[in-house]
Design a protein around this nucleic acid. Structure first.
Length: 500
DNA sequence: AAAAAAC
């Protein structure tokens, strides 16, 4: 199966090839032909499966014919967060480089005037978050009656965020005669209802959830205490194989605090959460993508869909409230054929949430201890330890005065250098070229994330990367209890995992 | 419980 078998145009195939993809992912193979045939579609899938390209590619070919009219966009893509919307826009730029398509990115937090100017000129595709779209609609800047193709992406997330009434309203403003595509990771009742109401005779396709079965991500629960969390995190961050990490916390206040304290300790850390200015959010993402910082402390604004290459580790400083969020968070690593590690700090209070996560991901996640007391533990310390989960005795580290924790015992690793060794990133387009390219109106805000460098979710593993990934997994497959574990361990883990 | 999204 190749992209050429799916009925896409030659120009598009060229753009796809130049992006480095050779083979469609399962969802692309299943979705592209019916979308090209103008059928309605329900795609049960989440990012990481190649979902975005499964609608972006056929849309480009569909939109290649016909012409734009001022204020009357021909298609609309709805995204739950601004960052996701920007990411989809980058995809349109990347795959649409041989087509003359006009695009407008309508998201909040940025100046409206550029967006309005783009709308005046006429756009083929509108990529929007609901709030800004409704706002501009209310101002009479958009007419949606010429919009014959609608994509509702991340529908379940939209539901969580209370966007369903907005979506319904938007749907009523679109022509009844249209093509509608709906993507969702899960199909809760309200989403089913929405689909019944706004889609006609849809073809339904489903691909397995990537993260829960993703063998490329090594997951560990790190037992600690509420008070020991920060120190535990620092230990984990100093692991030799830690090159680039996203640290998730449940609270914005904690995101701020963690980022600040890590930075003060010499870590190259930044932050992203919803209380920040949009420009600031994008700037932090850019710094992270560019390697200026190698640690991004984030709220769940960054949990879903964000596609950043080369994230070696995900840390859950807090166990997420919902098991679903866990799957999304850890899915930020192990992307594009690479392997990744996901550590979740768990305290005795998290027992219930952890149980839900293990139920969802289908099995116990290996525990590694730091020696913190685990009161409600299901296994006494003396019992036969779970693989590699022996409780370290002594816990000399535990007795360290708190103040010392402020200074890392070792130099924090430099932000960039390790990843560069591994990833030459040949696909990073030189800035000069990027700027020389005719600007397509409007550019993402602040020439945001470089188009060619993001959105890995549709990327087939490059051959060498894949081979490497497989080799590494196999190498450790028969390695006994710690199968899959790779790379040097933080000192306290050596105690518990050690030689057996 | 938290976070996200328009001004």
């Amino acid at each position: 199966m190749s992209f050429a078998d799916l009925g896409l145009s030659d120009e598009l195939l060229r753009a796809v090839e130049e992006s480095g993809y050779t083979e469609p992912t399962p969802i692309q193979a299943q979705a592209i032909p019916p979308v090209l045939m103008m059928k309605d579609l329900i795609g049960i899938a989440q990012t990481g499966t190649g979902k975005t390209a499964s609608f972006v590619l056929p849309m480009i070919d569909i939109l290649a014919h016909g012409r734009t009219r001022a204020r009357m966009p021909r298609s609309l893509i709805l995204e739950p967060t601004r960052e996701l919307a920007a990411q989809v826009a980058e995809n349109f730029e990347k795959y649409g480089k041989y087509h003359k398509l006009n695009m407008a990115l309508l998201i909040g937090g940025v100046n409206m005037s550029d967006q309005i100017a783009a709308l005046e000129k006429g756009v083929d595709v509108l990529i929007a978050t609901p709030g800004r779209l409704m706002d501009l609609f209310g101002r009479g800047k958009i007419m949606l009656n010429g919009c014959s193709l609608l994509v509702i992406d991340e529908a379940d997330r939209m539901l969580d965020m209370g966007f369903i009434p907005d979506i319904e309203e938007i749907c009523t403003k679109l022509p009844a005669q249209r093509q509608t595509l709906l993507f969702s990771a899960t199909m809760p009742a309200p989403i089913k209802k929405l689909a019944d109401k706004f889609l006609t005779n849809p073809k339904q396709i489903e691909v397995s959830r990537p993260a829960s079965k993703n063998l490329a991500i090594e997951q560990r629960l790190v037992e600690t205490s509420s008070r020991g969390k920060r120190e535990t995190l620092r230990e984990l961050l100093r692991a030799d194989d830690m090159t680039t990490a996203i640290i998730f916390s449940n609270r914005k206040t904690m995101v701020r605090e963690l980022a600040k304290s890590l930075e003060q300790s010499g870590f190259k850390a930044g932050q992203i959460h919803g209380d920040m200015e949009q420009s600031e959010r994008l700037r932090e993402l850019d710094r992270f993508k560019a390697g200026e910082i190698n640690i991004l402390v984030a709220s769940d604004v960054a949990a879903r869909g964000l596609d950043i290459k080369g994230v070696s580790h995900v840390f859950n400083f807090d166990v997420p409230w919902h098991a679903d969020d866990y799957v999304h968070r850890i899915g930020r690593t192990g992307r594009g054929g690479a392997t990744g590690k996901a550590f979740t700090l768990v305290t005795p209070e998290d027992a219930e949430a952890v149980e839900a996560i293990e139920k969802l991901t289908g099995g116990a996640i290996e525990r590694v201890g730091k020696g913190a007391p685990v009161e409600s533990s299901d296994e006494p310390a003396e019992a036969a330890p779970r693989r590699g989960a022996r409780k370290p005795r002594g816990g000399s580290r535990e007795e360290k005065p708190r103040a010392e924790a402020v200074e890392p015992a070792r130099e924090p690793r430099p932000a960039r250098e390790p990843r560069q060794d591994r990833e030459p990133r040949p696909d990073r387009e030189p800035r000069a070229e990027r700027e020389a390219r005719p600007a397509r109106e409007p550019r993402p805000p602040r020439e945001a994330p470089a188009p060619r460098d993001s959105q890995r979710d549709d990327r087939q593993p490059r051959r060498d990367a894949d081979r490497d990934g497989r080799r590494r997994r196999d190498e450790f497959a028969d390695d006994g209890p710690d199968d899959g574990w790779n790379g040097p361990l933080p000192s306290f883990l050596e105690v518990s995992l050690g030689t057996r």
